[in-house]
Write a protein that binds this DNA or RNA. Structure first.
Lengths: 258, 258
DNA sequence: ACAATTGCTTTTTTCGAAACTTTCCGCGAT
DNA sequence: ATCGCGGAAAGTTTCGAAAAAAGCAATTGT
């Protein structure tokens, strides 16, 4: 029988923490990961039988994980007729980008306002780690640890925001955007751009230049969005028409003013 | 055996919809309701055995519902050591209020910008229903249908917002605030205030006076928050000190500037 | 021809018990 | 008295199978 404490090792998530995990949480992480890297593709049906075989768990933990993922917008559940990986669409990409701009700017504003020495230190450290992973980039793309470092960097940027709610919403939107980000393989040129954006962001945050930092984060997010839009157009032209059924504010300005 | 289609009748949620429900979704609604009306009190432990008896379901559906509620912030799950109703605190109330101001204002701005005749019509209707339930108010408080009408009204206000994401976040925060709202029993004076605030909100939205509408919604939210703060202080003075461990921006201004 | 019905298969949902972990309590040693 | 150490009790988590529903295809009646 599997002892719970072995879980961490089996699933490769092994590190110091005591066994504060469950099968359900473990399969949640693995499912989320597989969805984010598109091992499970958008719109793909998720049948319990297949998932049971793939992850070696029973339906109980699976259902828990799927419910959680549905609340994160990564899975769609239709009662009594199964689950699928959430669809991606141009409309959703634009929506996600605009919403991120709103949330990230406010979180960053607060973080810069409230952050102290320790925040600065963690931010510098996170930026350093991020930059380090970028050195390992190959022609085929960024190394797997980049995603983690990138996430940690943006976390660190807003870590001093005094509102736990805002931070959580921000983190969720980041994950959501990650799915789209994965679609676009960065060219070396783009990578250098991103890299310097992160540097500028760090510097203006550290120097408490709020106005500049907010402008930078907005451009950063919208650039990421634009890149993903292009990738989406190339990859799946069918997704574009689906978006045309509703008003799409431009990616280049604040969303939604009449 | 219980046929699924009977569920709607048993749980009193009976209406036209076909049987698009499951035991898990049903118990989710009931749990949420009980938490919102404080039948299950903040910090109260939720043991599976008790919940099984109370709602007449097995652990499977229960766990699903609890995971979902945790993602809504109404329940806290500590892996391997059980669940409890999420705590309420002054800090969380303030956080929720500030975040709501940010989100509701943006959603309302977009809604006013994008809304058409049909949006106007639904808004007028929702306001009318809300006003009607307020006539049934007694000294002991508002009738149960007020909560529904109130929720529907604020939904209608932002229904034309083109961002599904923003609307969803808004709805979640509304629920979250509802817990605190329930704490404060409205005096007739306050009720009249609220009532006229809703009227003014409707009118400025209909006349597309965006600036005024945004100012009104912000005041509306902050007033609600202030009322709840007072109720919280009276009810549970212990909650206040807990908040003092972190910086608390004033309820009267935008949160978080240094 | 074609819509509705019936029976069969696939899939989801729920249950009840077993497996496992945490908590609590009594007891002896320091 | 306090601390540490079993060991039972309480609670959570997971499993495997049964139950219920949805999907499908052939069949029947019009």
């Amino acid at each position: 029988m599997i002892l719970y404490q072995e879980l961490a090792e089996i699933s490769g998530v092994a590190h110091g923490r005591r066994g504060e995990t469950t099968l359900a949480l473990d399969v949640l992480r693995r499912l989320r990961h597989d969805i984010l890297i598109c091992a499970l593709r958008p719109r793909q049906r998720l049948r319990f039988q297949e998932l049971k075989d793939r992850y070696r768990v029973n339906v109980g933990p699976l259902r828990e994980a799927l419910v959680q993922l549905a609340s994160e917008g990564l899975v769609e559940i239709e009662p009594r007729r199964g689950c699928r990986v959430a669809a991606i669409s141009l409309a959703d990409l634009i929506d996600t980008t605009n919403t991120r701009v709103l949330i990230e700017k406010e979180a960053l504003r607060q973080s810069i306002g409230e952050g102290g020495i320790e925040w600065e230190a963690q931010l510098v450290a996170a930026f350093h780690r991020l930059a380090a992973t970028e050195l390992n980039a190959t022609d085929s793309g960024l190394p797997p640890e980049w995603a983690v470092a990138h996430r940690d960097f943006h976390d660190a940027l807003t870590a001093a925001c005094g509102s736990p709610l805002l931070r959580e919403i921000r983190a969720r939107l980041f994950d959501r955007a990650n799915r789209y980000r994965m679609l676009s393989t960065l060219s070396p040129t783009h990578l250098r751009e991103k890299s310097s954006e992160h540097r500028n962001l760090t510097e203006s945050a550290l120097s408490r230049n709020t106005g500049q930092a907010l402008a930078l984060i907005e451009r950063h997010l919208r650039d990421t969005g634009r890149l993903a839009v292009e990738a989406l157009r190339d990859l799946d032209p069918a997704a574009a028409p689906a978006a045309s059924t509703q008003a799409i504010p431009s990616l280049n300005q604040h969303g939604g003013q009449s």
